[in-house]
Amino acid sequence: MGDIQKSNRSIFDLDLLRALVTVADCGSFTAAATRLHSTQSTISQKVRRLEELAGQRLLDRGVRDARPTDIGETVLGYARRMLALNEELAAALSGEGAGTTIRIGVPEDFAAGRTTRLLADFSRDHPRVKLEVSSGLSRGLAESYDRGELDLVLVKQRRGSREGLACWPEPMCWIDAAAAPTFAQDPVPLVAFPPRGLYREDMIDAVEALGRRWRISFTSSSLGGIQAAVADGLGISLLPARAVTAAHVVLGPASGLPVVDSIERVLLQRPSAEPEVKTLAAMLVRMLGEEPA
């Protein structure tokens, strides 16, 4: 009897539960190991130990991912509550105010304005949640999400490339400088994001389809840098409609440049995410769904 009681108590080892929750959140043992500053084998051993103590298989392990079983989902619910209570106790004893941290990734053109106002509203309703926001190129944000470094991300992608919680079309515009236009130059100067940037190949393909020569005149990983370079007459660019400023002129059908309608925004959130993450994701879905097309 004593051995059984000891075994049951061991099931609730917070270190083992944390390993399970992190694997479920990240979707893989490799990403979970990165988040926990551990090794893949150590995380795997902890989850296996928990499964042995529970007498149940808690994760379905695929070649590249790991998903909770039905009983695993039940254990995850209790595990999250136990870990949250542990953090609350630690915070109460140390005097710290925050409990949960949500790591969010958004493209640069969403890192201010309505997004920050929404995050402020969320923070007022969830004062114990700490928000960490990263902005950058969509490809980098998606890779960070896949590594388990971000909990919730908004990225831009080719239409239908990846399924997400919700997606919306991303209207695009060809822009030139209002004061010193450059489209008539030969070769056409292009202001672009770095190689592998989402719009770069669209720009090159479109100009070549016109039979025009081109050159990359300016490269920046910053949206603000691209906007300023075009406005100051360094070349034309292709940007989301929301990024067009008064210093730009939109190149319409008369330019011969094609309409680019292959880009969409997608919100990525793991099904096993914590309730606070799901609440914030729902708020973002409502906000993005209210934006004009």
Rank of each mutant, 00 (worst) to 15 (best):
H37S: 15
V244Y: 02
P189V: 12
V21F: 11
L53I: 00
S94M: 02
Q45M: 12
D121I: 09
A33Y: 05
A243I: 01
Q185V: 01
V250Y: 09
G211A: 10
D176K: 07
R9M: 13
L284V: 05
P107T: 04
M283T: 03
R80A: 06
D261Q: 09
S28M: 05
E264V: 00
G160T: 03
L89W: 03
V75I: 06
Q157E: 14
E274G: 05
G77A: 04
L154F: 11
I204V: 15
S134K: 09
S7L: 14
V259N: 11
R35D: 09
P181A: 08
D109S: 10
V23G: 01
K46N: 08
D125W: 01
D151Q: 13
D65V: 11
S94I: 06
V63Y: 14
A112N: 08
R212G: 05
I263P: 00
I204S: 03
T115P: 04
Y78K: 02
M287Q: 15
S38C: 06
R265Y: 12
V21H: 12
F183L: 12
R117L: 14
W174D: 04
D202C: 07
D109C: 04
D70N: 09
N86C: 07
P194W: 11
V207M: 08
V285D: 06
L76G: 09
A111D: 06
L238G: 01
R64Q: 08
S41E: 13
W174G: 01
P253F: 14
P292C: 09
D186H: 03
R9H: 13
W168E: 02
K278H: 14
L267T: 04
T101A: 14
A91F: 02
D13S: 13
L238V: 02
L17C: 07
I71C: 10
A142D: 08
F193E: 04
A179C: 06
L268F: 15
I263S: 07
C173A: 15
T30D: 11
E276H: 08
V191H: 02
A54G: 09
V207H: 08
V250P: 03
E163S: 13
I104E: 00
L234E: 12
L16I: 08
L239I: 15
S221D: 14
Y199A: 09
N8H: 15
V188P: 05
L131S: 10
S220R: 02
E276I: 00
L165I: 03
S161E: 10
A246C: 05
R57N: 08
E291H: 11
E274D: 15
G256E: 07
N86G: 02
A91Q: 10
D13P: 00
G211K: 04
A231R: 09
I226W: 00
S237K: 00
D205L: 07
R80H: 03
R128A: 12
M287D: 14
A241M: 06
N8C: 02
V106N: 01
S135P: 05
T116Q: 15
E163N: 14
W214P: 03
L20Q: 08
T34V: 10
G77F: 03
V285L: 06
T101H: 13
T22K: 07
G160V: 05
L76K: 01
A179H: 12
D15H: 13
L284C: 00
V266G: 00
L14P: 06
P107I: 04
A229R: 05
A111W: 10
V250H: 07
A166E: 01
E51Q: 12
V106I: 04
D232Y: 11
F122S: 07
P169E: 09
R147C: 04
A142L: 11
A142N: 06
R9C: 12
